[in-house]
Design a binder for these strands. Structure first.
Lengths: 159, 159
DNA sequence: TTGAAAAATGTAATAACATATCATCTTGGA
DNA sequence: TCCAAGATGATATGTTATTACATTTTTCAA
């Protein structure tokens, strides 16, 4: 449960917890946890999957929270910047962070069939990548690790 | 030189070599190395950097090789499919493979300042990601590893 | 407490990236 | 030589993301 998220669970509780944690973190850092930002995080926590900016915008729009793309992108930028949400590069999509209480390098397992996404962690400079960087003098600031494949559910069901 | 590509080098030679290797590989695999596909690979080898599909299309168009997006995307799909080119997810861009002669999991060092891209390699299931995958029953098929940061040139020059 | 600066929002327009569809042409192999 | 698969031409459209600028709200210190 702490590393992989393919299993079912009731998460009304975890949504509330995560929102409360985000609110607290914003308070201590003096960041504005505005209604749109809060709602975008809540949407991503509730859906518990990767969503595109325009999917989110559709919901915001239906709720009268804004209808133009920058509304969604600004909120997402804020949430990504502050570690509440991760961007999944392969999918051009966003997912709520599963471990928002500590700094980490996220890594994702992405099912190419059902698009489920599980988050785990990895080390910043592990193995050959870190070695290559330090050899060449490259200074790593951020690492994207995304594995594509089949989740446990889909492994059995496909050709 | 085999892992990192931030250093300068004369590469008229390596362009020719890489094209010849691609041609040979297509021959043995019975793939059609058509003029557009060849030219797209050549462009990426010559520029020796990540380029967007529309950048490439601009060049093709100026040369009378086609002016509509599918022309570029089809050629890129072919080249990616067959391991001659990699897609850089973070940049929505494409770069010629630096090690086309053997199968590998590419990893990239991407300079956020000058956009230079160096390719190195990594293991498919190294470390915690592989562990999380096998624990949960996720079957990894492809891994994207992209590090963003500052290249040796830019490390010195920025604030 | 109030006023200036910083941050956030509203809104319109457009840029950048990518695919669907269908007709036509070329190639390789039976 | 003919067929089937693969490649190309061409049009249209879908999806993702940013620029720009006016306005409002919040913060913070004088």
């Amino acid at each position: 449960m702490s590393t992989v998220g393919f299993r079912q669970h009731d998460h009304t509780h975890c949504v509330h917890t995560a929102l409360a944690q985000a609110e607290a973190k914003c308070k201590t850092r003096r960041l504005q946890f505005t209604p749109v930002r809060r709602r975008v995080l809540e949407i991503l926590l509730e859906k518990h999957r990767a969503m595109g900016a325009y999917d989110i915008l559709g919901i915001l729009s239906a709720e009268g929270l804004g209808s133009q793309p920058p509304v969604a992108y600004r909120a997402l930028d804020f949430l990504v910047q502050n570690g509440f949400v991760h961007r999944i590069e392969q999918l051009n999509a966003y997912a709520a962070c599963a471990h928002p209480t500590h700094d980490h390098v996220p890594a994702f397992l992405i099912c190419r069939s059902c698009k489920a996404v599980a988050e785990t962690e990895t080390e910043l400079t592990q193995g050959r990548l870190g070695a290559a960087a330090s050899t060449s003098g490259f200074q790593i600031e951020r690492v994207v690790v995304e594995a594509e494949g089949l989740c446990p559910e889909c492994v059995g069901e496909l050709p």
